[in-house]
Simulated assay, not measured.
Amino acid sequence: MEIFKPINEKKAKGKVKNIFSEIKKTRKISKIPNFWRSIAHNPALLERTWNSLKAVMKDGALDSVTKELIYVAVSITNSCGYCTRSHTFAAKKKGATDQMIKEMIDVVGIANQNNKLVEAYQVEVDKIYK
Rank of each mutant, 00 (worst) to 15 (best):
residue 20 F to Q: 00
residue 72 V to W: 02
residue 67 K to E: 03
residue 74 V to P: 01
residue 39 I to C: 00
residue 29 I to Q: 05
residue 45 L to Y: 11
residue 30 S to A: 15
residue 27 R to G: 09
residue 74 V to Q: 03
residue 73 A to G: 15
residue 37 R to M: 04
residue 43 P to E: 11
residue 27 R to C: 06
residue 41 H to N: 05
residue 74 V to D: 04
residue 32 I to V: 15
residue 27 R to A: 12
residue 78 N to V: 09
residue 51 N to D: 08
residue 26 T to K: 14
residue 61 A to G: 08
residue 43 P to S: 10
residue 39 I to N: 11
residue 31 K to F: 14
residue 47 E to C: 07
residue 69 L to H: 12
residue 29 I to K: 03
residue 39 I to F: 05
residue 48 R to S: 05
residue 64 S to D: 07
residue 58 K to T: 09
residue 48 R to V: 10
residue 33 P to Y: 05
residue 39 I to G: 01
residue 72 V to M: 01
residue 33 P to T: 13
residue 78 N to F: 11
residue 42 N to R: 13
residue 76 I to G: 02
residue 60 G to F: 04
residue 47 E to D: 06
residue 30 S to I: 12
residue 67 K to D: 00
residue 29 I to N: 03
residue 47 E to A: 11
residue 22 E to A: 06
residue 58 K to D: 09
residue 42 N to K: 12
residue 71 Y to S: 12
residue 38 S to M: 13
residue 71 Y to V: 14
residue 63 D to E: 08
residue 33 P to G: 13
residue 28 K to I: 07
residue 49 T to I: 13
residue 53 L to F: 13
residue 38 S to H: 00
residue 28 K to S: 13
residue 53 L to P: 01
residue 34 N to S: 12
residue 73 A to N: 14
residue 56 V to E: 11
residue 71 Y to C: 03
residue 43 P to F: 06
residue 54 K to G: 06
residue 49 T to G: 01
residue 64 S to K: 15
residue 69 L to M: 12
residue 34 N to K: 12
residue 39 I to Q: 08
residue 37 R to I: 08
residue 38 S to W: 01
residue 34 N to M: 10
residue 44 A to W: 00
residue 28 K to E: 15
residue 58 K to A: 02
residue 23 I to W: 02
residue 69 L to R: 02
residue 51 N to P: 03
residue 25 K to H: 09
residue 68 E to A: 06
residue 23 I to N: 07
residue 36 W to H: 09
residue 20 F to T: 05
residue 32 I to L: 08
residue 58 K to P: 07
residue 73 A to I: 00
residue 34 N to E: 13
residue 55 A to T: 13
residue 30 S to Y: 10
residue 57 M to C: 06
residue 21 S to H: 11
residue 74 V to H: 00
residue 61 A to F: 09
residue 43 P to C: 02
residue 36 W to T: 00
residue 25 K to I: 12
residue 27 R to S: 01
residue 51 N to H: 10
residue 31 K to C: 10
residue 25 K to V: 13
residue 70 I to T: 05
residue 58 K to L: 07
residue 22 E to G: 02
residue 23 I to F: 11
residue 43 P to N: 04
residue 77 T to R: 04
residue 76 I to S: 03
residue 48 R to Q: 10
residue 69 L to V: 02
residue 76 I to V: 14
residue 60 G to Q: 05
residue 34 N to I: 04
residue 38 S to T: 15
residue 75 S to R: 04
residue 78 N to R: 06
residue 30 S to T: 14
residue 71 Y to F: 15
residue 39 I to S: 05
residue 77 T to L: 05
residue 24 K to Y: 07
residue 31 K to D: 07
residue 78 N to H: 10
residue 50 W to T: 08
residue 36 W to R: 00
residue 41 H to S: 04
residue 42 N to W: 06
residue 60 G to C: 07
residue 47 E to Q: 14
residue 69 L to F: 09
residue 28 K to M: 12
residue 25 K to S: 15
residue 55 A to M: 12
residue 76 I to F: 14
residue 56 V to P: 00
residue 38 S to Y: 03
residue 47 E to W: 02
residue 61 A to V: 01
residue 45 L to Q: 10
residue 33 P to L: 08
residue 32 I to A: 06
residue 22 E to C: 07
residue 23 I to K: 03
residue 41 H to W: 09
residue 76 I to L: 15
